[in-house]
């Protein structure tokens, strides 16, 4: 049975105009279309610079695509094109519906881990006390000890920051989860914990679009793999079809 997509990207294009370099235009990706259903996990693969991160940022609308559509399910049978919304609508909807976990936690200065995760939960519609409970739970799942919850996230280690980031992205699970190398700084135990968490979210119906630099994560988590090459979507693979060459390139 084919499920309605949570995300449908249509003919999305993004290029940058660099005014400081006499208006040179740099294409990030071009004419990308794909869709992701609830519970599906689509991994993006390709060489560094192929446009994977730009694509994730464009879906999240940190980048503003030049053309194309990003349809997001916000309600059973209801969709919005993130590219056609006002800024305040985008801000509200993405806070509510999308979790974005980047490689680096660019945490606000002087904010504790629990506070960061709580803020995410509140944006997703939880009240203060539910958010506190959910945030505590999410931090426990990613293995952040309670003694670190009030510590400013900016002083945590790289791995700890990444786990806080993951907790914020997955707390009170959003409809769509965007993962940009969320495991890169994790030690084996925590990596395993994160893999279990992400896999569990897929089972709960969260749609995931991810970028992983290791084949094992893709094989364990992804249901489909989209291969990008110089900004073009060139192939779709099953995770078990991914060869070492492609994985190496991604690394």
């Amino acid at each position: 049975m084919r499920r309605d997509p949570v995300l449908e990207v249509r003919r999305l294009c993004k290029s940058f105009v660099l005014h400081a370099v006499s208006g040179r235009s740099v294409v990030a990706f071009d004419d990308v279309s794909f869709s992701v259903a609830a519970g599906e996990h689509v991994a993006l693969a390709g060489m560094s610079g192929a446009g994977k991160s730009s694509l994730l940022k464009s879906i999240y609308r940190t980048y503003r695509p030049n053309s194309g559509e990003v349809w997001l399910q916000i309600h059973a049978g209801k969709y919005v094109d993130m590219c056609a919304l006002s800024d305040i609508e985008v801000a509200t909807i993405r806070g509510h519906e999308i979790g974005y976990v980047s490689q680096f936690l660019r945490s606000e200065p002087r904010r504790g881990a629990l506070d960061i995760v709580m803020k995410s939960a509140r944006q997703r519609g939880m009240n203060e006390s539910d958010a506190r409970e959910a945030a505590a739970d999410a931090l426990q799942r990613v293995g952040i000890e309670e003694r670190l919850w009030d510590v400013y996230a900016s002083v945590l280690s790289g791995g700890e920051k990444q786990r806080v980031n993951l907790a914020a992205g997955t707390v009170h699970p959003p409809r769509l989860l965007l993962l940009d190398e969320p495991l890169s700084a994790l030690d084996p135990d925590n990596r395993e914990r994160a893999l279990v968490l992400i896999s569990a979210l897929s089972h709960r119906g969260v749609a995931v679009v991810s970028i992983f630099h290791d084949l094992e994560a893709i094989r364990r988590l992804a249901t489909r793999v989209l291969v990008l090459e110089r900004g073009q979507l060139v192939a779709e693979r099953r995770p078990d079809e991914l060869d070492e060459r492609l994985a190496a390139a991604a690394r």
């Binding site: 309605d4 449908e8 349809w71 916000i74 309600h75 209801k78 969709y79 919005v80 609508e89 909807i93």
Partner: peptide, 19 residues
Amino acid sequence: MNDTFTERRYDIARLAIPE
């Protein structure tokens, strides 16, 4: 599915887009 996709109105009450 195209019908639902072209619909740009969404449930404001649920998402509480502030005015």
